[in-house]
């Protein structure tokens, strides 16, 4: 029984359809990732799930409550971490957290304790009395995230929480996300970095121009590209002896060989198995290898395959 079930969500602005019939479901305890380039409609989808925007059509049910008809119920079980740093810059870290906690009806001892816990979690307890405006980008992001966690939501919506963050802070945010997941929270994570969703997400939905173009576990998605990989070899002298290309095509696992000037591009079902015989053929032909690269399949490649463009422009 999935925690979240979205049916045909559509959001239209005047002329533009930002989200165009998106359906998906998220199992309890999962980290579900939306991967897509700028303007794909990730934030718009999150905004609809969080009741910030009303869908033009379609609906989603979160823990049994409709995002269009039971907004009050939905609000109290979700936590939202917006893409922008939605904090009061002149207030301190703890003042920000306490304020948002109160907005979720928390108070007193419970709120104090929760603030302490979360500031420990994001490792900013020492800085609790500093104004947020004096924090680094990464520290702000961490407080921004903590502010969405105060009321221990069942479902957490994270919209690109690593934008503008140095690698160390990013690691830190990942650690925190895993901790939250381990504590039983279901998470929706959006990003336009494939490495992030590859690392974090149990299920990945690839989004482009308001539509989901593919979805599955990392393994499932990569298998869409085929098991194999691509081997690129540059040889000297340029121009290959006759028969080399034909010879290579006959090797075990090789599916295609392209030849252009000094470069050979070989597709294979399994690079590891195909490489030794290919090298042997090359050696026999008397060519030297100038450069050799092996590409394993990744989401970037899949995205290009599916949409004809790169994930990052």
């Amino acid at each position: 029984m999935p925690l979240v079930n979205a049916e045909n969500l559509v959001k239209k602005y005047d002329k533009l359809t930002a989200v165009d019939g998106v359906s998906f479901h998220i199992d309890e305890g999962q980290i579900f990732g939306f991967l897509g380039p700028n303007g794909a409609g990730k934030s718009t989808t999150i905004s609809m799930l969080s009741t910030y925007l009303e869908p033009t059509s379609g609906d989603a049910v979160i823990d049994g409550f409709s995002i269009t008809r039971q907004t009050a119920k939905v609000k109290s079980i979700i936590g939202v971490v917006p893409q922008e740093i939605a904090l009061y810059p002149t207030l301190t870290a703890i003042q920000n957290l306490k304020f948002y906690g109160k907005m979720y009806g928390m108070g007193g001892e419970e709120l104090d304790q929760r603030c302490h816990e979360l500031l420990d979690l994001v490792e900013l307890w020492e800085r609790r009395d500093s104004r947020v405006e004096n924090f680094s980008g990464g520290m702000k992001r961490r407080i921004n995230m903590a502010a969405g966690l105060l009321h221990q939501p069942r479902f957490l919506l994270l919209d690109e929480p690593t934008v503008g963050v140095d690698p160390q802070s990013r690691e830190h945010i990942f650690d925190t996300i895993f901790k939250i997941r381990d504590a039983g929270t279901t998470i929706l994570y959006t990003s336009h970095y494939m490495e992030e969703v590859e690392l974090l997400c149990d299920y990945i939905a690839i989004m482009d121009k308001g539509k989901l173009v593919a979805g599955g576990t990392l393994k499932q998605l990569l298998s869409m590209l085929g098991e194999g990989g691509v081997i690129e070899i540059e040889v000297v002298p340029p121009g290959c002896p006759g028969g080399l290309v034909e010879n290579m095509k006959m090797q075990n696992g090789v599916t295609a060989v392209r030849h252009e000037d000094s470069q050979l591009t070989i597709s294979s079902k399994n690079s590891a198995h195909s490489l030794p015989p290919l090298l042997k053929v090359l050696e026999d032909s008397g060519c030297d290898i100038e450069r050799l690269e092996i590409y394993t399949p990744n989401l970037e490649k899949l995205f290009i395959r599916l949409t004809g463009k790169e994930l990052r422009e």
Partner: peptide, 13 residues
């Protein structure tokens, strides 16, 4: 603009 108002809108307020 800063999104703090949006944050209140998605909270039970």
């Amino acid at each position: 603009d800063a999104g703090t108002l949006g944050r209140l809108l998605v909270a039970p307020v």
